[in-house]
């Protein structure tokens, strides 16, 4: 089964059909996508700002990571579910959209980097300021790529 036929199957599924047929389902799902984006941005920035040396200083970065973890995970789940639903409503259009593939590539890299390198550096507790800053910069840039790619999907 080719990728395109998989996309086409999603679009013709009952979920894709109902979202397309409804006037308000798409914007409502997109609103949840945006709300979760804001929360996730906050969770990511809390840890990254601290790694840059600008965030909350009197708590160790491991504690900030643990404090924001539920919000990072919760918002990521909402983003993935709402994003998946939005995807099904226009999958074949997205197949031909460069911004969609840019977003998916950034997303894969951002998730991978956050839950391997950043997590390890944060929880090790002994990263130098230079490597902390570099890891924070890469994390922010990867997630920004996801956001910019996502916004760009809307411009076609």
């Amino acid at each position: 089964m080719s990728v395109y036929s998989m996309f086409s199957w999603c679009e013709n599924s009952a979920i894709g059909e109902s979202i397309r047929a409804s006037l308000w389902l798409f914007p409502v799902i997109e609103s949840f996508h945006l709300l979760a984006l804001a929360v996730m941005g906050g969770a990511v920035l809390m840890v990254c700002l601290r790694m840059f040396g600008y965030g909350i200083q009197n708590a160790p970065v491991e504690q900030l990571w643990r404090d924001t973890w539920p919000y990072l995970m919760g918002s990521l789940v909402v983003l993935l579910v709402s994003g998946g639903l939005l995807f099904t409503s226009e999958a074949t259009k997205l197949y031909d959209h460069g911004a969609f593939w840019f977003k998916m590539a950034s997303l894969a890299l951002a998730i991978l980097f956050t839950f391997t390198v950043q997590r390890k550096v944060v929880l090790s507790g002994n990263a130098g300021p230079g490597s902390s800053k570099l890891v924070a910069l890469i994390t922010v840039l990867l997630w920004a790529g996801v956001g910019i790619g996502g916004r760009w999907i809307g411009f076609s």
């Binding site: 804001a38 996730m40 941005g41 990511v44 919000y71 956001g147």
Partner: peptide, 10 residues
């Protein structure tokens, strides 16, 4: 939104 609302939420 990520900067403003995200940190305001925190």
């Amino acid at each position: 939104l990520c900067l403003f609302m995200g940190l305001a939420v925190m």
